[in-house]
Design a protein around this nucleic acid. Structure first.
Lengths: 245, 245
DNA sequence: TTGCATAACGAACAGTGTTCGTGTTAGAAC
DNA sequence: GTTCTAACACGAACACTGTTCGTTATGCAA
């Protein structure tokens, strides 16, 4: 039994030696950080729908009930996940000569972050940023918009609109990715495009004179091109409204 | 037993008299239409999360397994729901003098339709419109954008962008509405605004010089105002990009 | 009438988030 | 060191979800 004395790391409880037969089985103490990190990793690897309290607990070597000592429920865990990921969003120091190009890069960068963390965008819907890390990011985004002399009220509303847009694009991509994974043998993006193009070009001309002639345009453009068009629309619109005010 | 002969309505099976003890218990034959109608009604009344195959079946006087003779799965039912609701979206005949104002009205109208059918926006994410009723609506929207001399490629992409934006706004509202309903005693929109404003104005000025001074702007504006700002940004942006091309 | 395809259904499955009761542990106080 | 207590950790179980499977009933064509 002497070999089974408890061993403490400095200031931490990691490494505690577990006596057989006892209730506490985890070799390492649970924490919100560990739970969130595993959730993010599993969302990336398996998609949002595959991540459950059970899958997280399994990887942490415990049962799902143990997670509730650290997170109130699944919804709170989702919000913690978003906070962790969105805190990675970096906003550069504003350059008044090119604030709009900087803004474009930022929105593209946010989509990149969400793409690097598949599934997380699914958690962003309905979230009000009140966590300090995210507020710090919002603060910097506001600085960028002020460099473009955007009126305060428009800044406030544009922060909402643009982040919602990026989040929803990412969420849709997530949904598509998971849907494709479910099918097992996923058609390539190109195959899908060809297929949808056929649907459109085979529509009856009498009933769909415009759409049938626009099969090419409707199916042209990578996801990036479509997204960047949307960002350009948002930024051009903001500039036009600001100038008109 | 003579009173229990089967009675057929004209060309329909409705009204079949059920012999007691038999397996078929429903007084009325199931159909996709009936299932979708009940789903839409329940989403409106109880929110998306409260609608299950069981709740639908219960209202139809049967069991959940019976629904699978008509819809492949829950996902397909969701898509049918969207198709039914979005087919209500009416696009006016285009007036080249005011196509942009018409477009604005259309996007606002779409949000109105989704608001009138709470929960449905939750089903719109990731949906490609291929159903005839929805394609007819897209055809008319394309006509409106052509009246504004928007280039084809921009039309194609704008249809995506704008419907995604409206859908995500509606989805967020749905999520908020359900979250409030879960709390039971929901704070009013005004109370929520006051609360969030306090959070922002009490931020440390040294750390959040911009945000702390923008509490008023960040919390100003009804949901409608915020949404309409977003629509104005999209339309102004589209016009600016089209003109520059 | 018969035969067959499809609708309808109950039972059960596999899975989800969560609660409850209980045992264990960490850390403060003495 | 011991004692006490709050919080962590856990297993069992709950209530619920979407769905499948096997069986029976029904509609419709021949």
């Amino acid at each position: 039994m002497a070999e089974q004395r408890r061993v403490y790391a400095s200031g931490d409880r990691v490494g505690a030696t577990v006596r057989s037969g006892t209730r506490r089985r985890s070799a390492e103490r649970l924490s919100v950080d560990r739970i969130v990190a595993v959730a993010i990793d599993q969302m990336r690897t398996h998609g949002y729908d595959a991540v459950t309290m059970r899958s997280i607990a399994r990887e942490l070597g415990t049962g799902p009930a143990s997670l509730y000592a650290h997170v109130a429920n699944r919804a709170e865990l989702d919000q913690l996940v978003v906070g962790r990921v969105c805190a990675l969003w970096e906003i550069p120091d504003p350059d008044p000569e090119r604030w709009d190009a900087q803004l474009r890069e930022c929105l593209i960068s946010l989509l990149g972050i969400l793409r690097a963390h598949p599934g997380v965008a699914r958690c962003t819907m309905g979230m009000i940023p009140v966590e300090r890390g995210m507020l710090a990011v919002v603060e910097r985004l506001i600085g960028l918009l002020k460099a473009g002399e955007v009126p305060d009220q428009y800044i406030a509303w544009f922060v909402d609109v643009s982040s919602l847009f990026v989040g929803s694009v990412a969420a849709e991509e997530d949904i598509w990715r998971e849907r494709m994974a479910d099918i097992g043998e996923a058609p390539s993006e190109e195959e899908t495009v060809v297929e949808v193009r056929e649907v459109f070009s085979e529509l009856p001309v009498a009933e769909f004179p415009l759409l049938s002639g626009m099969a090419e345009a409707m199916t042209t453009g990578t996801g990036d091109e479509r997204f960047e068009f949307g960002v350009d629309v948002l930024i051009s619109g903001l500039k036009a409204l600001s100038a008109a005010r």
